[in-house]
Design a protein around this nucleic acid. Structure first.
Lengths: 239, 239
DNA sequence: TGTCAAAATTGATCAAGGTCAATTTTCGTC
DNA sequence: GACGAAAATTGACCTTGATCAATTTTGACA
């Protein structure tokens, strides 16, 4: 694990531009935005490095600029479960700003070389207490996330492994697209498996079975969705 | 299903007192509180009546005064899954205030005769946009709820049925209590089963097995936790 | 108190997906 | 391009909890 201090880098113009657009910050006036920027920095992460650990004190909230991050939880017995795979443009850890004595409820680990922007939590909190707009934005964000989690519980309890996999694959293509498309997996298959709460072996078998039905084509970490309509049907009339 | 309009009742002093203490409202100044009260009403629900349905437009958020409410989701195929069982004093639906085009993401159905206070959502939203304190309170609430959901996903994916049941039972007694205690189930067993994402048959068998190990005693909807330390151990070194 | 429907229990069986072990494939590094 | 470690695949087998069907129990209400 590399020492994170060595990776702290200043914010350049491109980064500034990007975070200015970030939903969590765009309602800030320029003075407040400047204050946030003062207290923020970018961070380069090599593959497989720990950004923060479950249970450690929350100091920053993050915006992923490039790469990929998995958020995972540790069971008492050592098992790990990937809760979410963060893609560029997403913010994370903002939901933990309040509760839980301000500790991160998950661990964040890069799955590819990544760059994140760390936003100083305390500063952000201070601005929150002063800006109603900012509060409302964050409220909407959390509300949306909560809704997503309710759906996730649905998927876990009401649907089987095949459903979850197909649903996951379909979430990578536009709602209305009907043509065969390549989906390239953003993480190693065993991470995807954990995200979907199935074992790598089962993921492998399930993919193979879909391929045998001519619904998809397998080519390493690239998966071609052949018969999107049938896939959609599969998840819509799911057992 | 009874016509809900006939059950709309005015807020009396006792109710006013209670909702004044409610976390979601206590940071309001008295003028704003009065405005909310103007737009709120209590509602009596017989057992097994629908308060609101998944997908219907969100008009009110609720505080349960007495009784019990289950929040459940409907799968496309008709299966139902109880997400949460609401107890008196809890508010619900507030997390849906923002996202999802303002539709309820779950259905709410009484499991015993219940009384709820309906708080007019639009009014509350309006006050939210005017009060930073109120926003921060709600933020904390949502953040806490989100944290709870993450734990729920943990339980569903990292732990088996016995764990979830024991964990549920233990959540009904004080953290530090060690003496045998009666836990009385707040809902019919099949509702508890759905809440725990197991089948009624499995719940029955699992309870019996715990009883056979002399960890609990069964007596209808009353369950006596005999050996609390062993139960705690069971969930702490869980598979 | 008797009746009836819903809830709970019990037994028998089954299937999805997990586990374990053995290969094979992939990929980063020299 | 060769090497080695990690990832992925495959096969054999097993466990958990679901399903189906048959009773038994409970509880509301006449």
């Amino acid at each position: 694990m590399k020492n994170s201090k060595t990776d702290r880098i200043a914010l350049n113009g491109f980064i500034l531009n990007t975070i200015r657009q970030c939903p969590l910050l765009q309602s800030l006036n320029s003075q407040d935005f400047d204050e946030i920027v003062q207290q923020s920095h970018a961070k380069q992460l090599p593959e497989n490095s720990v950004l923060f650990e479950q249970g450690s004190p929350l100091t920053d909230i993050y915006l992923l600029m490039s790469g990929g991050i998995k958020l995972q939880r540790l069971a008492p017995n050592g098992d790990e479960k990937v809760i979410e795979i963060i893609r560029p443009g997403q913010t994370f850890a903002e939901a933990a700003l309040f509760s839980g004595g301000s500790c991160y409820p998950v661990s964040a680990i890069s799955i590819t070389p990544s760059m994140v922007v760390a936003i100083h939590a305390e500063t952000y909190l201070k601005l929150l207490t002063g800006s109603n707009d900012l509060c409302l934005t964050l409220l909407a964000k959390l509300s949306q996330k909560l809704h997503w989690m309710v759906n996730e519980v649905d998927r876990l309890t009401l649907h089987n492994a095949t459903f979850r996999l197909v649903d996951y694959l379909l979430s990578h293509i536009p709602e209305n697209s009907n043509d065969r498309t390549d989906v390239s997996l953003v993480a190693p298959k065993h991470v995807i498996a954990s995200r979907l709460s199935i074992k790598p072996e089962t993921l492998s078998r399930t993919l193979k079975s879909l391929a045998k039905q001519n619904l998809i084509n397998l080519d390493g970490s690239k998966i071609e969705l052949i018969d999107i309509n049938s896939l959609r049907q599969l998840v819509s009339l799911e057992t």
